[in-house]
Amino acid sequence: MGNPIVFFILALIAIASALGMLASRNAIYSALFLVLNFVTIAVLYLVLNAPFMAVVQVTVYAGAIMVLFLFVIMLLGAERSGSRTEGLRDWEWILAGFLGAVLIIVFLTNLVMNPSAVGDTAPFIDTSPAALGLRLFEAYVFPFELTGVLLLAAMIGVVVLGRRKKMAQLEKGGNDA
């Protein structure tokens, strides 16, 4: 499942970029760190014999979604909305950090205690887009259709939410009353 040296370099970059996103005061930096993170993971997908998913990860996540994020941040001019953690109470900090630590420690401990055999890996399988497409349309036709409906609903929702004209009318009516 990949060369250890390659994995560790990629893992380090992924963790570092994630922490960068978490710590950046500026939302734009956060977004850019996140893009880096996504790209790193896309590379990991390649290592894991999932070339199609890697491409999708780059185009949809790193491309489309993050562009949307950046677009909204710039549209609202909200890149510097306050400090990272202002208004947080101590107990919130402590509890969140504690829980995060517990989560990581518990899992890692578990992994260390019950390690998987290193070579216990299945042989390579056909992961070409054609094979993926066949699987998708044979076994997962119904979820696929549902996803289509979900996307349509999301699209309508976004259009409705984004109608400025309607809001203006409502506010105007509100003032009248």
């Binding site: 994630a18 909305s81 919130e92 969140a96």
Partner: peptide, 28 residues
């Protein structure tokens, strides 16, 4: 010469926890 599944799971957990911290701690 190759990484075990455990390492991927570990990376996944770490990234997940960082994400969760972001949800819990950030205002924006």
């Amino acid at each position: 010469d190759t990484v075990s599944i455990d390492w991927y799971v570990a990376l996944s957990i770490i990234l997940f926890t960082i994400g969760a911290m972001g949800v819990l701690l950030r205002r924006n």
